[in-house]
């Protein structure tokens, strides 16, 4: 299981607001029912769509197959993101590696 809690909670709360909280707040009027249904369905469909995308990548069975030039470019361009995320010891390795790449 490779889900991280924070995005799950954020997205669920976000769409729960749209799908559960907002429908309660809809002002009274002839169109109240319609607006409520629209909001609930929006919340459900959008949350489901995000969930599927998330779960499909949770446990990847295959890895991306990349061209070596793409890998070099990735290493060069996406480095700043690695630095921001101090999650992994490999960061240092990759920085070293990137510096090397830059020298080439």
């Amino acid at each position: 299981m490779g889900a991280s809690i924070i995005p799950c909670i954020i997205m669920t709360i976000l769409w729960a607001i749209v799908g559960i909280f907002l429908p309660i707040l809809v002002p009274k009027g002839p169109n109240r029912g319609i607006i409520q249904v629209a909001l609930i369905l929006t919340g459900v469909t959008c949350w489901l769509f995000w969930l599927c995308a998330y779960m499909a990548q949770m446990n990847p069975l295959i890895g991306p197959k990349l061209k070596n030039t793409t890998i070099l470019m990735m290493a060069k361009q996406w480095v700043s993101y690695f630095l921001l995320s101090t999650r992994n010891i490999y960061i240092y390795v990759s920085i070293e590696f990137v510096l090397e790449v830059n020298k080439i």
Binding site: G63, P64, K65, T70, Y90
Partner: peptide, 26 residues
């Protein structure tokens, strides 16, 4: 061509939080 291996350190262990990981586009 090199294929990244999800069971090694190539993969963070958690998915891209919102949508499909941009690496797939390439």
């Amino acid at each position: 061509f090199l294929q990244l291996n999800p069971s090694t350190a190539d993969y963070w262990g958690t998915p891209y939080p919102l949508g499909i990981d941009p690496v797939w586009q390439m």
